[in-house]
Amino acid sequence: MSTATHEESTPDMEQFHPHRRWYRRPSVVVPVVLVVLGYSILVSPLIQEQNFFRPDVTADGSVSFDWNFFIHLTPLMLQGLVVTVKATLIGFLLAVVLGFFLALGRRSHRRWLSWPVTAVIEFIRSTPLLVQLFFWQALVRSSEGINLQPITILALGLGIHYATYCSEAYRAGINSVDKGQWEASTALNLSPVTSWTRVVIPQAVPNVLPALGNYLVAGFKDAPMGVAVNVHGLLFFADQVRNDTFRATEPYLIAGVGFLLVSLPAAWLVRRLEKRISYERV
């Protein structure tokens, strides 16, 4: 995703420096950075789920808000936050891929395919994610032989929920490609696969990127719901500190602060992307 935009943003540089070193080429560096980041966050055991959030300072019992306690909760909060971010990223990966196929299914001319897909999309879109999470959890528990971690259930639920949103974005993006492009690729005798991968998708994706970014931020906002299925994320941290220390104000407020620290920059980045793409289109 970001490779394409990065390349587009520096076309003139490419002309003047055709033989840059590999580490100065966005087309090489961006995937490498993404893969390393993705591996370190999603796959490697570098970041582990914390089982017990136990603060090492105790609060002053006489006041209703203790700044010292508040500050010292930060490292624990960050551990919870990372788990939440991780679930969001895995879920969004699923949503982006699954959403595309849902969009294709909905656009299909075969009614036996497009009608059920439309019904499923509408159903998932208008029901709460929380209930869906419970549903997936119950489904996993009642089926034999399948045993999923809570974080996997959360990522699955988030992914399926936001796949329906993403599919609408894709559908709008694909519909925004000019009809003449389809006719031209038919006239050039391109196979359906070629006209999709080489003509339609490259033009549709830049239009879709801002919407996808918005859904990533929205998915991050829903990820703390994982506390309901026992994901050891941001709200689980706050709940556990409250149960441990009988103090509710500090953990929940610092959870809110940590959340804003991620979501506001993310929203700002998406807005910048949106502006940049609309600027390039004009």
């Binding site: 906002k221 829903d222 719901m225 709200l235 706050a238 509710a248 104000t249 929940y252 407020l253």
Partner: peptide, 19 residues
């Protein structure tokens, strides 16, 4: 728009009344 509705709910329903 930046804060999640669930975290806002927990703050408003649990943290603020005590504060």
């Amino acid at each position: 728009r930046g804060i999640s509705s669930i975290i806002l709910l927990f703050i408003v329903a649990i943290a603020l009344p005590i504060l």
